[in-house]
Computed example of a mutant assay.
Amino acid sequence: MWWSETSPGPTRRGTLAALAAVLVASACEFTPVYAPGGQGAALSGNVDVAFQNGNVEFSLGQALQDRLGPPQSPRYRLSYTLRTRSERVAITTAQSTNQFNLIGVATYQLVDTSTGGVAMSGRVDGFSSYNSSGISVSTQAAERDGYDRLTVILADKIMSRLIAGPELSR
């Protein structure tokens, strides 16, 4: 904590620590991702997501598009493939499964549309879980929710890689 528990304002030591953190960040040429000229600005509104067929695949594309914003003047095209599988995790003594893990692996490729060159590519993975109640309607709803959470996890990981990747031209 950079302020004292007993005083209402920041302490001298806390102020110096905050100032030191700012100086260190500026010395390493820290640039906020979504600031003008940052990597997030290069992606925002400049990426056309190549949606895939299938409910889960489409959901991943939608999650990516939500993070990238609608393409206004797309400079890049983001394509992806998604593989998922379900694993039984918790099995009762009666041999019925009451919990599943959903495992997903997504590969992605960001292509510069003006040159056709690959700007970035990679692979991310993640998992989500859901419980089976034994009632088919609620189990199906839990499974859909599990896949939705999985696509959000994978989209967030892809975005983290894109933002932390090599600098893109604007």
Rank of each mutant, 00 (worst) to 15 (best):
30 F>C: 08
30 F>R: 05
30 F>D: 07
31 T>W: 11
31 T>E: 15
31 T>L: 12
32 P>G: 13
32 P>L: 10
32 P>S: 15
33 V>Q: 13
34 Y>S: 13
35 A>T: 14
35 A>V: 13
37 G>Y: 07
37 G>I: 10
39 Q>M: 05
39 Q>D: 05
43 L>T: 00
45 G>P: 02
45 G>C: 10
46 N>S: 14
48 D>V: 02
48 D>L: 09
48 D>P: 01
49 V>G: 00
49 V>Q: 03
50 A>Q: 00
50 A>R: 03
51 F>C: 00
54 G>E: 04
54 G>V: 04
56 V>I: 13
57 E>S: 08
59 S>Y: 01
62 Q>D: 11
62 Q>Y: 06
62 Q>I: 04
65 Q>V: 04
65 Q>P: 06
65 Q>Y: 05
66 D>L: 02
66 D>P: 01
66 D>E: 07
67 R>H: 01
69 G>D: 00
69 G>W: 01
70 P>L: 11
70 P>M: 12
72 Q>I: 02
73 S>T: 13
75 R>D: 04
78 L>K: 05
79 S>I: 00
79 S>R: 09
80 Y>E: 08
80 Y>T: 10
80 Y>W: 09
80 Y>R: 10
81 T>I: 06
82 L>V: 01
83 R>N: 14
85 R>M: 10
85 R>I: 05
85 R>F: 03
86 S>L: 06
88 R>A: 15
89 V>Y: 14
89 V>N: 10
90 A>G: 08
91 I>T: 15
91 I>F: 13
91 I>W: 14
91 I>A: 14
93 T>R: 15
94 A>I: 03
94 A>E: 12
95 Q>I: 10
96 S>V: 14
96 S>C: 02
96 S>R: 14
97 T>S: 07
99 Q>D: 15
100 F>M: 14
101 N>M: 10
101 N>H: 12
102 L>P: 04
103 I>G: 09
104 G>R: 08
104 G>Y: 11
105 V>T: 15
106 A>I: 07
108 Y>K: 09
111 V>W: 07
111 V>S: 07
113 T>I: 13
113 T>R: 12
114 S>G: 08
114 S>P: 01
114 S>N: 08
115 T>I: 09
116 G>W: 09
116 G>R: 12
116 G>A: 12
117 G>M: 11
120 M>P: 05
121 S>H: 13
123 R>K: 14
123 R>L: 12
124 V>W: 05
124 V>G: 03
124 V>N: 06
127 F>G: 01
127 F>A: 00
130 Y>N: 04
131 N>M: 13
132 S>W: 06
134 G>P: 01
134 G>W: 05
134 G>Y: 05
135 I>K: 06
137 V>W: 09
137 V>F: 13
137 V>C: 02
138 S>P: 04
139 T>R: 06
140 Q>H: 12
141 A>R: 15
141 A>T: 14
143 E>P: 09
144 R>N: 15
145 D>T: 14
145 D>R: 14
148 D>W: 07
150 L>W: 01
150 L>G: 02
152 V>F: 03
153 I>G: 04
154 L>R: 02
155 A>G: 11
155 A>R: 03
155 A>Q: 04
155 A>L: 10
156 D>Y: 02
157 K>G: 11
160 S>D: 11
162 L>P: 09
164 A>S: 13
